[in-house]
Structures are given as structure tokens and as C-alpha cells.
Design a protein around this nucleic acid. Structure first.
Lengths: 215, 215
DNA sequence: AAAGATGTTTACCGAGGAGTATACTTCAGT
DNA sequence: ACTGAAGTATACTCCTCGGTAAACATCTTT
């Protein structure tokens, strides 16, 4: 909507001599991210549908049209929260890319970062936000990211089986179990009390690695 | 459904001189439950906030005030969906009450029923519906039920440790991991394709019991 | 058959909230 | 200082949707 003008502008940005000053663009980006962070917090606390754009604006000491100056609509706000969280987890996979550690070692490394991401401000959005609140296009983009993470987990499990660090098992179902346990952290974890993300991750790893049956 | 109704009618006919009113109360209960079931389906498919009471009414070929004749408000509809799902899981614990099996054996029995409940129509409501959509009073009731289930899992794990069927571990964190993996099934399971609840449960049990490390 | 209870509908209300038209303000570059 | 772009606010619009009043219909009891 406001988009046509700004899209055209964005396209022209590299060509035109009248680029907005670097500083201004930076400020804009900072503000945009502030909106997204405030939204992630509010969504986690009150839920998406119980947080109005006016609420967000009030949290940032501005008014609603200001929010719309930085983001197209409420859906885009949610999408960015979603994406930010998922990107953190994808980052975990980037970090172990090229590592020569065993599959299991790499898997546990990912799980530690995973736990951090899930307990971050954006954890809620990743886990609780619903497809239904996103347009089909955005929803597909999110699902692609989620699938990437799922495939990454399976791949690590397969690698672990291949190198002998992980017992022979069904990578798909094992990945589901792992992801489920991790994602669910967002439902019960409270930052103010209890275990740190690292502690949770370590105990989950212990649980999954050793199994319930006595050895 | 029709068969169930007529069976109940036959039973009532033999029991009571107040047969008509009994029958009526029964019909009322049946309709009330039909609303709840339709709601559970719709919530799972479209989400709570994207399902209006008018939508529900349309699904049942009635109008909105009819819905309100059977349930106080939309919150109560959600609450009943929630409760129905959670009760199924609580039922799993009732079934093993008094069993002399090992802790691990009882735990796996519960997990099988748990998987069934989670993949039922009401699975979504248990897992995805948000506290925020319930009044504090209802929310507390739901949380009490959830806590009961959590305590039940921990108890089984503790029993298993005591009787030697389960490795020494932190019951709290283990219960969280188990519940998380199970609850997450609601996010990826599609009834029309893939594994049955029993198959999922069995593979999860295998995963948790044996662990990732080769034995 | 009348009277009441139960069930269902039509037609409405009012709140909340997403999004916008438009005007005012600030600031960067000339 | 002047001009245009960027940023912000005021003051709306419009629509969805939860909930309800009151009438209409049907069934039960006497």
C-alpha cells in the first residue's frame, strides 16, 4: 500500500544519486528492529491476538501510524519475529558447518544454541505463532525455514549413524522427538527463574543420549 | 452418533418415570458435545481466533444464539475443548492405576494413550490454545489439569528409577522432554497420512528408552 | 386445548482494532 | 533561508465479531 512508493524507492536505491544518508538508513533500521523486538516481547507475554498495533505503539512511545511507517502491516511484524527466531536456529547449523566433529557432537552443539534461541524473546513466535495468522505466501516462507531446520537435524542424525556416534534409529522420528522437546521449552521456561538455556540443553542431551533404560 | 442416541434412549426408557425429561437432558448433552466437537475441529483447522461463533453455528446448521443456548460464551467452548483433551490423557493415568507393572512399562502405556489423545480432534486445543484466551479462573483450572499430568509423568519416572526399570535421571527434566516430544506431535501429525498414533508412540518410546548412544 | 417449558431464529448492539488520509514537524542538502 | 523528503501525530473509516433482546416454534404436561 504505502509499499508501492517504498518498493520503487528500494529498487532505485542503488542507482540513484539521491540516496538517503547512510546514517538515516541506519536509524531507520534500528527503529524497525525496535518495533520487532517490542512486538516479540508483547506477543510472548500477551499473545498475538491480544496485542494491538496501538499497544505496540504505546510501548514504544509513538503512535500507530509511526509503526506503519516502518512495517507494512501487523502480519509483517509477526513474520519478522518468526523469521528472527528461526534465523537464530539456522545460525546454529551454520556454526557447525565444516566441523569435523562426530554427528552426535555436532547435534549437541546445535541443541545448545537451539535452547538459547527458544528461550529468547523470539522463542514464542517460533513455537506458538500460527500459520493462520500469516498470508499463504508468508506462511510458505516460514514453513520453508522450518523444513530446513528439520532437514538439518535429520542430516546430523544420519551423519551420527554413519560415523557410529549415534545408534541406528529412524532419523525422521528422532528429529521430531528432539525438536518437540526443544520447542516445548518455550511453553514452560521462564527467564527469571529456574535453569538457564545451557543447563536445560545439557540435561536434555543427557536424557536423549543415554536413554531411559539403565545401562 | 444416531445409534448412540437411540441406545441411550432405550436405556432411559426402562429406568425412570421421568423418562421424557431424562431424554431431553440427554439430547441437550449430546448437542452440547456436538458443539464442542465441531469447535475442536474448527479450532484445529483454522485456529481459535479465526473461528467465529457464527462459523461454528454454520457448521452445525444452526444460528449463533443456538450455540449460546448450550454454552455460556466462546471461552467456555474453548475451555471444554481443552478439558476434553486433557481428560483423555488423565484417563491414561487412571488406566494404569493399581497396575503392578514396572515404572517404565506403565510409562510406555501412558505414552501410547497420550499419543492417541494428542492426535485426536482435541489435540490442538490442548497444545496450541493459549492461556490468554481464557479468563484467569478457567486458566487456573486448565493449569491444574496440566500440572496433574506433569506430576503423573514425574511420578512414573520416579517409580521406574525406584524399581530399577529406568536409569537414574532428573524426573522433572525427563518429564519435560517426554511431554514436549509428545505434545509436539500435534504440530506435525496429519491423520490422513503417515504413521498412526500407536506407531508414533512406539517409535518415540524406542527413541527415549534406548537413547541415541550406541549400546 | 391451554399453559408452560424448551429450542431456535431474526435482527440488532457496541467494542475493539486494523489500517489510512492528511496535516504538521524535523532535518539534510543546497 | 529554502525545499523536499522523512518522520510523526490527529482524527478518522470500516468491518469483524462476541454477545443479546425478543419474537417465533415446537414439544410436554395437565
Amino acid at each position: 500500500m504505502a509499499s508501492r512508493a517504498s518498493r520503487l524507492k528500494a529498487e532505485a536505491a542503488l542507482e540513484s544519486p539521491w540516496q538517503p544518508s547512510r546514517e538515516r538508513a541506519r536509524q531507520r533500521e534500528i527503529k524497525r528492529e525496535a518495533v520487532i523486538l517490542a512486538a516479540a516481547r508483547a506477543f510472548r507475554q500477551r499473545g498475538y491476538h491480544h496485542t494491538s498495533v496501538d499497544d505496540l505503539a504505546a510501548l514504544l512511545n509513538v503512535t500507530k501510524p509511526t509503526i506503519y511507517h516502518y512495517l507494512e502491516n501487523k502480519e509483517e511484524i509477526l513474520f519478522e519475529c518468526f523469521r528472527t527466531g528461526l534465523d537464530q536456529i539456522r545460525g546454529a547449523f551454520d556454526e557447525i558447518r565444516g566441523s569435523r566433529d562426530s554427528g552426535l557432537a555436532r547435534l549437541t552443539a546445535v541443541m545448545r544454541r537451539y535452547a538459547q534461541a527458544i528461550t529468547s524473546e523470539f522463542g514464542w513466535c517460533m513455537v506458538r505463532a500460527e500459520d493462520q495468522d500469516l498470508s499463504p505466501v508468508m506462511s510458505r516462507r516460514i514453513n520453508a525455514l522450518k523444513k530446513e531446520i528439520d532437514q538439518g537435524l535429520r542430516r546430523l542424525i544420519e551423519d551420527g549413524i554413519a560415523d557410529g556416534s549415534i545408534r541406528r534409529c529412524d532419523p525422521k522420528i528422532t528429529a521430531f522427538a528432539l525438536a518437540g522437546a526443544m520447542n516445548w521449552i518455550a511453553h514452560w521456561h521462564r527467564a527469571d527463574a529456574g535453569l538457564t538455556p545451557e543447563q536445560i540443553a545439557d540435561r536434555f542431551i543427557e536424557t536423549f543420549v543415554n536413554g531411559l533404560r539403565p545401562r
